[in-house]
Nucleic acid binder design. Sequence first.
DNA 1: ACATGAAGTGAAGACTTCTTCAAGTTGTAC
DNA 2: GTACAACTTGAAGAAGTCTTCACTTCATGT
Lengths: 112, 112
Amino acid sequence: MGVPLYQAKAEFFKTLGHPARIRILELLSEREYAVHELLENITIEPSNLSQQLAVLRRASLVVSHRQGGEVTYSISTPEVRDLLLAARAILTGLLHVQEDEATSAPASDPPR
Amino acid sequence: MGVPLYQAKAEFFKTLGHPARIRILELLSEREYAVHELLENITIEPSNLSQQLAVLRRASLVVSHRQGGEVTYSISTPEVRDLLLAARAILTGLLHVQEDEATSAPASDPPR
DNA sequence: ACATGAAGTGAAGACTTCTTCAAGTTGTAC
DNA sequence: GTACAACTTGAAGAAGTCTTCACTTCATGT
């Protein structure tokens, strides 16, 4: 009961406010990944990736477990997936509007 | 297409990563508000509120229109509401887990 | 025991975002 | 047109976040 909830929410969204962290969560939404596998899919220095994973761990959005020589990450709850989808819905909506305002071009490919 | 989508998403979440902006969006999820009404509900300086509203406007999450002497704000699309709900779901889930880990206390009031 | 690949950490400078201030609109009432 | 409330803006220092670096840890293979 320490922190007001709207502040906890802001913290939560801050955690998502970084390109590398978004990519990590999108990858982990599909399946678990070892750190070196993430590294193959994200253009980032290893130590930077570790830092970003640490941020996600502190926020309890992901969990890690060691499997022998490698460390595997997965999302802590499937609701993370839902949130990313909800964000995608808004974002594609907004992008379409802005595009229509700018050029009134025809409907484009749905973004991933 | 200029910016990669995962970067647009990160920007989008950054926009939500501020307590005042969360409160604004939560209030506007219920109904439209004039700026001076928001001011009554959020503890913040007027010029700071204007700055935060400008951030939300630039991100196209809210729209404003003048009605005589006052300016009224509303959310640009109802999906904003869905997103806040999705966030709430994750957050209450995570809070419960942390609470259980710490004290193993009984179920608490559902947060707003 | 040593070397190696995999991952994490603390610290420091670069870079962004926040808050506040003073000044500027815009609209209504007198 | 002056006065007032409602609201916005630009700028600047304070505060926070990012990226990188050197170093450490941990497990496996030799």
